[in-house]
Write a protein that binds this DNA or RNA. Structure first.
Length: 272
DNA sequence: TTAGCCCTGAGA
DNA sequence: TCTCAGGGCTAA
């Protein structure tokens, strides 16, 4: 499931491939994947040049020459593929972007349809209209900023990390991995964590994300790079998806529990 | 704060 | 055939 590292990897790859290209045609295959009307996409986008590709939290964004922004949220199974025509045979494709300079197409594919595409004119750096205002990236905030957001809160730390209005970018995998790295039990209430522990957590989050980006993200179910390649950070997960296996640090078994409707993986020995 | 919804494919 | 996975939103 694409979280911050996966979207970052994708945006870097797409920058190289579609930065500067001019859109020739946009085909909407499933209108329900769009937040606005189909006409807006099919009529507004053609003939526009792509200035650059941005990432904000888990959103990927194409900035066009006239300032319009095309946003993609990959949900759980969303993919942005850069593939040669014809692409009509590819199942679960909801949007196709064609370009003037190449026969390659940018294809948005999303079997479970949790992903969303929106077109806005917001200034760069903000989030698309209709999306709840999200918090800053972990990278964008200082340790002090992180403390300001999380210190003293009553909720369980894992649930707070998943709350995108507080901080954007973390999903289930990287929340679990970061908490392991910081040695914090996911069930702990934030107000029970002192500043040292919270700062350690912020650092653990940044380290985990950076490492994941370097390894091309995690390809668990459906995440693929723009060229169809896979990330390999999943081979380095220390707790996520390792229920019943030995903890790499202490040899105790990794546990899995349910927290706020999501699974949480942790080592009760190493995380307190 | 939690349950339910959206949705499909994988695995039991 | 049933259960489960999960991001983000909404309702209770």
């Amino acid at each position: 499931m694409p979280e911050l590292p996966e979207v970052e990897v994708l945006s870097l790859q797409l920058s190289k491939r579609i930065g500067g290209l001019r859109i020739a045609e946009v085909l909407v295959r499933r209108e329900s994947s769009l937040t606005g009307a189909r006409q807006g996409f099919e009529e507004t986008l053609p003939s526009k040049r792509i200035n650059r590709i941005l990432r904000r939290g888990k959103f990927l964004c194409l900035e066009l020459e006239d300032g319009a922004l095309l946003w993609f949220h990959l949900g759980m199974t969303g993919q942005l593929l850069w593939i040669p025509r014809p692409t009509a045979y590819v199942p679960h494709v909801h949007l196709v972007v064609r370009f003037e300079e190449t026969e390659m197409e940018l294809v948005f594919r999303d079997p479970r349809r949790f992903g969303k595409i929106c077109l806005t004119k917001e200034p760069a750096g903000s989030f698309p209209e209709g999306v709840r205002p999200w918090g800053p990236d972990p990278y964008e905030m200082s340790d002090e900023g992180f403390l300001k957001i999380f210190r003293g809160r009553k909720g369980r730390i894992k649930n707070l990390l998943l709350n995108q209005t507080l901080m954007a970018g973390l999903g289930n995998i990287y929340a679990d991995e970061s908490l392991f790295r910081a040695g914090i039990d996911p069930r702990r209430r934030a107000y029970r964590l002192n500043s040292t522990k919270l700062i350690r957590l912020h650092q653990a989050i940044c380290e985990t994300l950076t490492e994941a980006i370097e390894k091309g993200g995690s390809s668990i179910d459906d995440f693929l790079h723009a060229n169809g390649g896979r990330g390999f950070f999943q081979n380095f997960h220390r707790v996520y998806g390792r229920e019943g296996e030995k903890c790499f640090s202490c040899g105790d078994l990794v546990h899995r529990i349910r927290l706020a409707g999501r699974s949480a993986h942790f080592c009760p020995q190493c995380q307190r």
